[in-house]
Amino acid sequence: MKRILLLAMLTGGIVVNGMAQTKTPVGSLGKNDPKAKAILDGVSKKFAQLKSVVANFVLKVEGANNSVTDSKKGTVYLKGAKYKVNLDGQELISDNKTTWTYTKDANEVTINNVDPNSTSLSPAKLFTNFYDKDYLYRLDGETTEKGKVLQNIEMTPTDKSKNVFKVIVSIDKKGQNIAKMKVYEKNGNHYTYEITNFTPNGSVTDATFSFDPKKYPGVEVVDLR
């Protein structure tokens, strides 16, 4: 589950809607889709104006045959570049300088420095313009799910050595929020992250984004800094 939690830092059935759009290869001639960029820029701009975000999500893990093998509920807290993810007895915390990964069953926390040059997709990066540097992208049409019109953007990493070869980001057209993300791995596994509740400008203190060992009696600390 540690690997699944890290994938969740990126952060149901879909009924195809209306008119089909002409699809072009992702990053055709090395260029990105300007329509997709406009949508992603809109999400980034809106997020930059928020003081904080609290979002609940459901993570579904699917095997190569599209069967759901696991489903977990989680919560992510965001404030600028700081974040905290709670998922099934695990916590991932970052104050943008240090990250703490805590596993409840083992009562263990691993500490690392934040690498500013890392291309990993953290929760904070997910709502910024990370896509311009690390991905090629195109608009893959609109779909309707649970009464919401979603704009689906297909993204492929520019670094082809990554285990993830494709990500579908679904944007709520009306709310300009990320509604869902589906991550495709080369081994055939899929991970779907569906946002079930999105609360902007909630009450989130800076203490949320640090790990206090006093609150975890007997915790084993693995400091890799």
Rank of each mutant, 00 (worst) to 15 (best):
V76D: 02
D95I: 03
L92R: 00
K125Q: 12
G89T: 14
K125M: 01
T119K: 05
E91F: 13
L59Q: 08
K84S: 09
I111Q: 00
G63I: 10
K104S: 15
W100G: 09
D88H: 09
S120H: 14
L92Y: 15
S94N: 08
V109Q: 00
D115Y: 10
N113R: 05
E108H: 03
L78Q: 05
L92C: 12
N107T: 13
N117H: 11
S67T: 12
K125Y: 07
Y83T: 06
N96S: 08
T69Q: 07
E62L: 06
E91K: 14
K97D: 15
Q90L: 06
S94R: 00
Y77S: 04
N86F: 12
A124Q: 00
N65T: 07
L126F: 14
G89H: 10
T103G: 13
T110S: 15
G63V: 04
D95F: 09
K79R: 02
D95R: 07
N65Y: 08
S67V: 14
Y102P: 04
K73I: 06
K104V: 07
L92W: 15
A81K: 15
L59A: 00
S122P: 06
G63W: 05
N107D: 14
N113Y: 05
S122W: 05
S71F: 03
L78Y: 08
S94A: 14
N66Y: 04
L126C: 01
N113L: 09
G89Q: 10
L121M: 12
G80L: 04
A124I: 00
N117I: 00
T119F: 05
V109T: 03
T103M: 02
K72W: 02
T99V: 09
K82Y: 10
K79Q: 06
G80P: 02
N86Y: 05
Y83V: 04
D88Q: 13
K72G: 11
S122H: 04
N66W: 12
G89E: 04
A124D: 06
W100C: 13
L92T: 12
A81M: 10
V58D: 13
A106M: 14
K84P: 04
T75C: 11
G89A: 11
K84C: 07
G74A: 02
T110F: 01
V76W: 08
N66T: 02
G80W: 10
G80N: 05
D105T: 15
L87M: 15
A106I: 14
T101M: 12
K72L: 15
N112E: 01
L121D: 04
L126P: 05
E62I: 02
K72D: 11
S118W: 01
V85R: 02
G80E: 08
N96M: 01
S122N: 12
K72M: 13
